[in-house]
């Protein structure tokens, strides 16, 4: 750690996120504000320099000789974990690593890989692996008037409520892999601030030409399907199961292939209006 400490750091912050103390420092103060944009939503700066995990970002750029470039290097505690000539790539890795660590070790919260929106005081959770069309469905629901909560993690508490994790959406064009960051304001939506009780869980997979005819899952089948997307079930199975049980008891859980997101989004909102009012 001493070796990394001696590299020289221009700016930094200790912060608290979901009960975890994390530090981040950068070698170039001009990128500090950008780095802060990658911290977990809801982070709060703390005065103490004592942290559970310390990230250090050494910004690269032009080298000492013409045509020579220095790597952007990400250190975790005492060793480097990633380097790239592209700063954006390094910062994206930093965000992925940080958010996933928070998802694994967050105190009193259960993280599920899922999109979340709010509708008239109820939360809809849309679990799914990457590329299953989760963000597309979240974006469509937001365009239809739902409140944005997350496109990456459903953050659940012991009562089965979903808390906001409103990072910018990672939108992919159809057939593309590369994501473009899109703020919720650009979509014309608003981000939620208060936790909402989960009333619907939708397991959907995009399939070209499919029409949306979901089937309802039993409580137990729904919990099993949710567990498949939980981040820390092996580390904290008791908390994870308890939160999911609360979600399952109060939610309608649906599974099915969907075609265009608009059809599924309208179905979800109509269902919430008609059956859960």
């Amino acid at each position: 750690m001493d070796k990394v400490d001696r590299l020289g750091w221009a700016a930094g912050v200790s912060f608290n996120a979901y009960g975890l103390r994390i530090g981040v420092r950068v070698s170039d103060s001009s990128v500090f504000d950008r780095v802060c944009g990658f911290l977990p939503p809801g982070w709060k700066a703390v005065g103490s320099p004592v942290v559970d995990r310390l990230y250090s970002i050494r910004v690269g750029g032009e080298g000492p000789r013409p045509g020579m470039r220095r790597f952007n290097i990400l250190y975790l505690d005492g060793g480097w974990i990633f380097r790239s000539l592209d700063l954006d790539e390094a910062l994206e890795y930093f965000e992925t690593n940080l958010h996933n660590w928070v998802a694994l070790y967050a105190h009193r919260r259960v993280f599920v890989h899922a999109g979340v929106v709010g509708w008239r005081g109820k939360a809809v959770v849309i679990p799914g692996h990457s590329l299953c069309g989760k963000t597309t469905l979240v974006a469509e629901l937001v365009r239809a008037g739902a409140t944005y909560y997350s496109d990456e993690f459903a953050v659940l508490d012991a009562q089965g409520r979903a808390h906001p994790f409103p990072r910018p959406l990672g939108v992919r064009e159809q057939g593309e892999v590369i994501q473009t960051r899109c703020s919720i304001e650009e979509l014309g939506g608003v981000a939620g601030a208060k936790p909402l009780p989960v009333r619907m869980v939708v397991f959907s997979q995009y399939k070209q030409g499919a029409s949306w005819r979901p089937r309802q899952l039993s409580e137990g089948q729904g919990v099993l399907a949710l567990l498949n997307h939980a981040r820390a079930v092996r580390l904290r199975p008791e908390n994870t199961l308890a939160a999911m049980r609360q979600v399952a008891r109060r939610s309608t859980m649906l599974r099915g292939a969907r075609g265009e997101a608009r059809e599924a989004a309208q179905f979800i909102l109509d269902y919430l209006d008609n059956t859960l009012s």
Binding site: T96, N100, A103, L104, E152, F153, G170, L227, A232, R234
Partner: peptide, 10 residues
């Protein structure tokens, strides 16, 4: 149960 991977989208 899924392993406690350090990465969500990869």
């Amino acid at each position: 149960a899924p392993k406690a991977l350090a990465s969500a989208t990869s």
